[in-house]
Structures are given as structure tokens and as C-alpha cells.
Design a protein around this nucleic acid. Structure first.
Length: 828
RNA sequence: GCCGAAGUGGCGGAAUUGGUAGACGCGCUGGACUCAAAAUCCAGUGAGGCUCAAACCUCGUGCCGGUUCGAGUCCGGCCUUCGGUACCA
């Protein structure tokens, strides 16, 4: 007997395993999510940042990124848009290679295995991805076009080689990424102190696009925060370049300054220790100390060097430069706070107007001259605000902006300086001394030099057999079959470039490849690229605010310049999902605070888990993980299922009307009719703006209202249930389909998208509650007919006992009336 | 240090352009069902005061001040937390 009842309850409970699988199979077999890319009317390209398959599992962050975004896409689909929603794998990269070094499992094998596992999980989530457009960047038919892109950039002079410092571990004999260097500057693998080493590297000349990358930000709908970060990253500053002669030589030192107006106050110069002139200028007397100083900073990262807490260090070179306006000799120093990578690698130091220079001058007892009048009572050190120039001869009295213009004119006339715009943005270093990436399509020939691989010989296939264990140099160098080749130009023996590309190259154009990943006549189908970009909605983490999102914008603009796309920007609208933390910290293996989503997916089902992630809070905020509320969403789903289970075939047996006249409805029906239409309107605006938490809450409210559904006539019930199912479907797609099916429909909802119009006339209540305040304090709420005028509301308000109590024997000074909302009586 | 975001019940969080603070959910309390429990359903639930109870009153959105008939929302000054960034000449 007892067992019987328990079994009965089990039967009644929403069998999510069965139903989710049923619809996943249906969607896939019927290719419900195959997008017709030729249908451009009402097209929407909805993109999520593709998956980095460094582990075989989908973590909470993936679910949080993909689930809600898929719900948005489904909502758009139901509303009649032709939505393209692809998914793929950012499959190259360091983690797979590190894993290989540790375990011996080849990166290709582990990556393909991970992709298979992750694909199954993505399907389990129930996203409406167009599986025909799935791609992975480690496939030759994908990275072939990275190589092609490289050659186009090379042709235009936008891919070039130069020396650049890398983090080098002398023990492992390998280049390290910044994340492989620990905070104390040691190698994460062996603990040896990492040093900076110069290597010849490939760069993409993103700086050529600096101005346009800055400009373009005005045209796109991105979070202000992200745009600001890009603006700061590009770091445009306007100033001047000035040449300083070096005493006793013909050498000139070029400096960049944003404050040319302070030239009269330049009392010394500082070069970056790596500056090419340092060795030449240093006098024999100081050579030893300078060399020692250079050695002492060799193992310092840029972060160490530029730390604000560290005391200033530096050393005199023994040489002097000549200040071009005062003709005075000023000492030339070197110091680590000047970086070779910014500006010209040399500064004129003006301690009077620069805090860093002041600190340095004070420490090393260098002269300080103020060239801007400080305001009365100013007691600080360097004065960086505006003011009239002093101690500056022909500039005296001019304020900063005017003084700048005047001195730049003077410098230009004398031919020793010019107006300059400088960017903080550096060119993009794309070569990696790694295995698991796209080979660089260049051949080194002793006769012809650098020779690009002819386009018809692409792809340069990444060989499987290499020694990817770190033993110096690029792993590809270990495969002689790969390395040794013939020069395409002269036919003599030559060697292939053994470096691979940064994976940010892969992710800079994948959204174009999705449109037809099998296209073999080019990087992507240009017709589709032109029609489907910019991407309408791009959703991904804020950690990509600068690098990925800037590189992709650069590449897109380049592709436009060579005629492959016509849009200026790749991503029109951008949304960042928040970060889900656990116990106050980002989830990571090393912290041991990773939450496995599968335990919840297996216990409650994909729909419940997705919906719970949406219900947790504002999408863009993220928050700390807690599974406390998931039972609430589960109950909601259970109640929904039993509601529809109890109304099977209603759409067939009791077809509803398009709309109902309020006057013909009972009081209960009227209330429900209003609520349904209000909810429909609410869902529309909330889901549209990624406010899923309030959308779910609105549906829960509606379900609560439906407790009295039994008191309604049958065809009215159908009206309500159909709308409920439709609103529910984007948020919980499997059960949404099932509800629609339970109502008696043969065609799947997402196969035959549908949306109901709001009956606006039902949104208006006929009675409203007006808050009556006395001196701004709530004293009563009264119910009045909607749109009651001031007089009528006042009459009702002032006859309420609770109000009378507070206004009797008092003088009414003022009365404020906001129709349908507030009646405030101000008394003395 | 600088830039950005956020501080609301026991908890996650709601709250158009300033207009009834606490929607929705969790938890908790009481009740129904049950031999009992679980599940489910119903009711209550910011704090305090006064009440047998209700009514009612006071306080209440990190802190201090301001503007306003009216402030979670606007302004000024702080505090805390979380992200981002690192001497950019």
C-alpha cells in the first residue's frame, strides 16, 4: 500500500530525464535549429564566446554564459526572428600542451576527447545551436585561414618581425607566459628565477588602427565600462617629441612629453636601461656601475619595475645633454621607471611638474625648477595643475594649453621637435614558441630571406609527431620533416618558421567562419560575412574586455579594408555576464572551490538548473554561488508540469478566443486575464534586456494567480495556458515544448515559432490604490476609480479616519496630487 | 594610488522618469494530510512599541549631512566589499 503511493507520487513528478532527452532528440533529428542564412529579413546573430576546452567538463561559468543567452535567442526566435546561434571550440592553447608535458597525452588527443565530452554537455543543456556550423580552431580547415590572414597582413606590411623581450626560464630553456611566472618572479614549474630575454618575434601592427579603434567605440552598444577600458588601453596622449643633443657627440636623444610647456624646467634626462644609446653614452668612469644596474633589473618584470610602492632607483651615466631652450647641461641618468616600450624610451625629467620626477630628483639631489606658478598656499611637491608659466622666458604668463602651442611652434621652427600623438597601445606580439597552435606560414631561405608560403600550398599542417617537452626553442623544430623544405622562390634548401600563432588570432574571426565552416574558397563566405555582420548580440566575460575584444575589432577592420566585409565593427551589442564566485573567490582548481554543475543537472534537470541560474540575480552582476534557492525553482517547474498535465488537449478540446472582452468575464477571469497580459508585457521587456531574474519572478506570480483557474470556463483556461507555455518556453525550453505538446499541439513550438500579442486594454485596472500621505508619511491607502481627478481623490482621502486623525486641528499648507499614485497633504 | 561596480529582512534579491520599501524565491513558525515522517497544500513572517487580539504608533535601504511636499533612487563628504589597472613621460 505504502509503496503504491510512493510510486504514484513518482509517476506524477516531472520526469525530466525522459522529457529533456525526448526534445533534444527531436530538435536534433528535425534540425529545428538549422538557420537559413539566406533569409535576411529579421535576422539576428546571437553569439557567445566559444568554449576553451581545457577540461572535459562544462563548469558553472559556461552554464551561466550559455543558458541565459540561449533563452534570449529562443525568445527572439519565438518572436519571429531568424536567429543564428552557433557554438564551437577555441581548441588551441597552452593548457593542452602543459597537460601533455605532464601526462604524455598528446594535445590533439586530449583536446578532441574534451571536445566530445563538452559537446555532449552542451547538448544536454538544450541550447538551440546550429550544429552544422560547429567549428574547432585546431582543425586544418580552420587554421589554414589563420595562415591566409597572416599572409594578407604580411603583404600589407602589417605583419613584421622585430626583437622583443620574453619571459625566459634558463633552467627549462623555454619561454613562459605571464601566467606561468609566479609573483616572486620564479618559474612555476622549476622555481628558477625568470629572466627577460630578447627574441625575434612576429607582430601584427594593430597600432596602425589605433585611432580608428578609438573612434569606433562611439558606434557600438557596449557597456561604458568596457569602452573605457579600451580607451585607456589604447591610451592616446597628445604632446610633442623633442630632440636633445648629447654633449660632446652627434647623438640626439628623442623624448616624448605631454608637457612640452615645461621644457624650461627639464633639469635632467632619464633613459630606459635598455635604451640603445646607453652603452654608447656612458663614460668609462660610470660603465661598471651602469652595467651593474642593468644586470640588477634584468630579472624584473615590467610589473616589478613599475611598482608604486618600490623606492626609485637609477644611476648616472656620466653623460650630459643640452636643454634646447636654456642651453644648459643636464645630466643623463638611467632608471627602471622609464620603459623602453612606451614613447621613445627616454624622458626629459621635470621634477617641478611631475611627481615621479620630483621623487627621483629629491632622492638623487637633482635640481628642481618650477615652471608653473603654484597657487597661494600650495604646499605640495610637484604641481601638476594649470597655471601661468614662470621661469620660462618667452612662455612666462601663458597658461598650460597656450604655452604648449607656443613652444611646439618654436620647436618646429627650430627643427628640434614636433607635435606628436603617442599611444600606449603596442603592436600585437603573435608568435609563440609553442607546439599547440597555428604554424606561421613563412619559410626562411638563406638566399631569399623571409618567403611567405604560397597561398595555394596552405595549410601548413601542424605535424603530430614532435617533442613538445620543454628543452629549448620551439617544439616544431624537433620535427625535421616539418622544418626542412624548399624555398618556394628559388628552390634551394630552406627551413620553415617553427613558431605558432597566439590563439587570440583564432578568436579574432571565428564569428565569420561560423557562417559556413566548410567553405573552402576563402577564409569565410564573403557574401554571408557581409550580410551577417556585425553580430547583433555578443555575450561573454568581462575578462576579455581588452585583449580579445580589441584584437577582433582590429582584424575585422582589416578584413573590411581588404574587401571581405562591409561593416566597421564585429560586435554591435555586447553584454558581459557576471562572475559566479564560490565562498567569495573565483572558482579555481588551485583554490579547491569549484562547484560541479552536473550534480544539480542530474538531480533537478537542465531546465531547472538553467532557470535557477537566471533567477539568482541580475545577469551582469553574477554573485556568490549558493544552491539554497534551487528547490524553489524546482517546485515552480513541478507545479507548472502538473498544471499542464491536468489540462491535456485543452487546445484541441476547448479552443480559445484570440482575446476576451473584460466585460464578459467573471471577476476571477478578469483578474487572471489582466495578470496574463501584464505578465506577457513584463516578460517581453525583461527578457529583451537580459533581466531574467525578474522575468522568472513574473511567471511565478502568474502561476500563483492561476490557483483560481478552476473557476474559469474551459476555453478561457486554454487562452491562459497557451500564453503561459509560450512565456515559459524560452526560459525552460524542454518543459516549454512539453507543455505545448500537452495542450494538444502536434507541431513543436520552436519548429513553428509563435508569440501572442498583449491585449493592451487589459493592462489598465479600473480601480487603483492611492497612497495618502500627511507630510510625506504614509497614513492610508485608498481605492479609487482609475484616473480619478484631484477633487475626487481629495474627498476620498480626507474622509478616511486614519487621515483625519493627522490633519484635524491643523492648517493645510499644500496638497500634492499625482494621479493614480499619491495624495500628499502638507500640514503645519 | 587611480578607474569602475555594489552595499536593502535570517538569506538570494524586487522597486519606470524621485511617488505605498521588501515583489518573487529560500529559510523559519503555525496548521491540514499521515500511525509517523518526507513530499504536497494553506496561513503567517523587516525591527520595536502598545494591545487578549485587531487597530494604531515609532524606527528602518552602509555612515554623516543636504535638496524636496516626498529620497533606496538626486547632490556633497566618508566607510566597507568586489572587479580592473599599475610610475605611460
Amino acid at each position: 500500500m505504502t509503496t503504491f503511493f510512493i510510486n504514484l507520487l513518482r509517476i506524477m513528478k516531472y520526469p525530466f530525464q525522459e522529457i529533456e532527452l525526448k526534445w533534444q532528440k527531436f530538435w536534433e533529428e528535425k534540425k529545428v535549429y538549422k538557420t537559413d542564412l539566406t533569409d535576411l529579413e529579421k535576422k539576428i546573430y546571437c553569439l557567445v564566446m566559444f568554449i576553451y576546452p581545457s577540461a572535459a567538463k562544462m563548469h558553472i561559468g559556461h552554464w551561466y554564459n550559455y543558458g541565459p543567452t540561449d533563452s534570449w535567442a529562443r525568445f527572439k526566435k519565438l518572436r519571429g526572428y531568424n536567429v543564428f546561434e552557433p557554438i564551437g571550440y577555441d581548441a588551441f592553447g597552452l593548457p593542452a600542451e602543459n597537460y601533455a608535458i605532464k601526462t604524455g597525452i598528446h594535445p590533439q588527443d586530449s583536446t578532441l576527447q574534451n571536445i566530445n565530452d563538452i559537446r555532449a554537455m552542451v547538448k544536454h543543456m538544450g541550447g538551440m545551436y546550429d550544429w552544422d556550423s560547429e567549428l574547432m580552431t585546431c582543425a586544418p580547415e580552420y587554421y589554414r585561414w589563420n595562415q591566409w590572414l597572416f599572409l594578407q597582413l604580411y603583404k600589407k606590411g602589417l605583419a613584421y618581425r622585430k626583437n622583443a623581450p620574453v619571459n625566459w626560464c634558463p633552467s627549462c630553456q623555454t619561454v613562459l607566459a605571464r601566467e606561468q611566472v609566479l609573483n616572486d618572479g620564479s618559474c612555476e614549474r622549476c622555481g628558477t628565477t625568470v629572466v627577460q630575454k630578447n627574441l625575434t618575434q612576429w607582430f601584427f601592427k594593430i597600432t596602425d588602427y589605433a585611432e580608428e579603434l578609438l573612434d569606433g567605440l562611439n558606434k557600438i552598444d557596449w557597456p561604458e565600462k568596457t569602452k573605457t577600458m579600451q580607451i585607456n588601453w589604447i591610451g592616446k596622449s597628445i604632446g610633442a617629441e623633442v630632440d636633445f643633443s648629447v654633449s660632446g657627440t652627434d647623438d640626439k636623444i628623442k623624448v616624448f612629453t605631454t608637457r612640452p610647456d615645461t621644457l624650461f624646467g627639464a633639469t635632467y634626462m632619464v633613459l630606459a636601461p635598455e635604451h640603445p644609446l646607453v652603452d654608447k653614452l656612458t663614460t668609462s668612469e660610470f660603465k661598471k656601475k651602469v652595467d651593474e644596474y642593468k644586470d640588477s633589473i634584468k630579472s624584473m618584470t615590467e610589473i616589478d619595475r613599475t611598482s608604486t610602492v618600490k623606492e626609485k632607483t637609477g644611476i648616472f651615466t656620466g653623460a650630459y645633454a643640452i636643454n634646447p631652450v636654456t642651453n644648459k647641461y643636464i645630466p643623463i641618468w638611467i632608471a627602471d621607471y622609464v620603459l623602453m616600450t612606451y614613447g621613445t624610451g627616454a624622458i626629459m625629467a621635470v621634477p617641478g611638474q611631475d611627481e615621479r620626477d620630483w621623487e627621483f630628483a629629491e632622492k638623487f639631489d637633482l635640481p628642481i625648477i618650477r615652471t608653473v606658478q603654484t597657487p597661494e598656499g600650495f604646499e605640495g611637491k610637484a604641481y601638476i595643475e594649470d597655471g601661468p608659466a614662470i621661469n620660462s622666458e618667452f612662455l612666462n604668463g601663458f597658461y598650460v594649453e597656450d604655452a604648449k602651442k607656443k613652444i611646439i611652434k618654436w620647436l618646429e621652427e627650430k627643427g628640434i621637435g614636433k607635435h606628436t600623438i603617442n599611444y600606449r597601445l603596442r603592436d600585437w606580439l603573435i608568435s609563440r614558441q609553442r607546439y599547440w597552435g597555428t604554424p606561421i606560414p613563412i619559410i626562411h631561405c638563406d638566399e631569399c630571406g623571409l618567403v611567405p608560403v604560397p597561398e595555394d600550398q596552405l595549410p601548413v599542417v601542424l605535424p603530430y609527431n614532435v617533442n613538445f617537452k620543454p628543452d629549448g626553442g620551439s617544439p616544431l623544430a624537433s620535427n625535421s620533416e616539418f622544418v626542412n623544405t624548399k624555398c618556394p622562390k628559388c628552390g634551394s634548401d630552406a627551413k620553415r618558421d617553427v613558431d605558432t600563432m597566439d590563439t587570440f588570432v583564432d578568436s579574432s574571426w571565428y564569428y565569420l567562419r561560423y557562417l559556413n565552416p566548410k567553405y573552402d574558397k576563402g577564409m569565410f563566405d564573403p557574401e554571408l560575412g557581409k550580410a551577417w555582420t556585425p553580430v547583433d548580440m555578443y555575450v561573454g566575460g568581462a575578462e576579455h574586455a581588452v585583449m580579445h575584444l580589441l584584437y577582433a575589432r582590429f582584424i575585422h577592420k582589416f578584413l573590411r579594408d581588404i574587401g571581405l566585409v562591409i561593416s566597421d565593427e564585429p560586435f554591435q551589442k555586447l553584454i558581459h555576464q557576471g562572475t559566479i564566485t564560490n565562498l567569495g573567490a573565483k572558482m579555481s582548481k588551485s583554490k579547491g572551490n569549484v562547484v560541479d554543475p552536473n550534480q544539480f543537472v542530474y538531480e533537478y534537470g537542465a531546465d531547472v538548473f538553467r532557470m535557477y541560474m537566471m533567477f539568482m540575480g541580475p545577469y551582469e552582476l553574477g554573485g556568490d554561488w549558493s544552491d539554497k534557492g534551487i528547490v524553489g525553482v524546482d517546485r515552480f517547474v513541478q507545479r507548472t508540469y502538473s498544471l499542464f498535465n491536468n489540462h491535456r488537449n485543452y487546445s484541441i478540446d476547448f479552443p480559445s478566443k484570440e482575446r476576451y472582452d473584460l466585460n464578459g468575464l467573471s471577476e476571477v477571469e478578469k483578474a487572471i486575464y489582466r495578470k496574463v497580459n501584464q505578465t506577457l508585457e513584463k516578460i517581453q521587456t525583461e527578457v529583451e534586456h537580459f533581466r531574467f531574474n525578474t522575468a522568472v519572478a513574473a511567471l511565478m506570480e502568474l502561476l500563483n494567480e492561476l490557483k483560481s483557474l478552476d473557476e474559469c470556463v474551459n476555453n478561457f483556461k486554454t487562452f491562459v495556458l497557451e500564453r503561459f507555455a509560450l512565456m515559459f518556453a524560452p526560459l525552460a525550453p524542454h518543459l516549454g515544448e512539453e507543455c505545448w505538446y500537452l495542450l494538444g499541439y502536434e507541431k513543436s513550438l520552436f519548429e513553428n515559432p509563435k508569440w501572442f500579442e498583449v491585449d493592451k486594454s487589459a493592462l489598465i485596472e479600473d480601480k487603483v490604490n492611492v497612497a495618502v500621505q500627511v507630510n510625506g508619511k504614509l497614513r492610508a491607502t485608498i481605492e479609487v476609480p482609475i484616473n480619478s481627478d484631484k477633487e475626487a481623490t481629495a474627498k476620498a482621502a480626507k474622509s478616511d479616519e486614519r487621515v483625519i486623525k493627522h490633519i484635524q486641528d491643523k492648517e493645510i499648507v499644500k496638497e500634492i496630487f499625482v494621479p493614480n499614485k499619491i495624495y500628499n497633504i502638507v500640514v503645519k
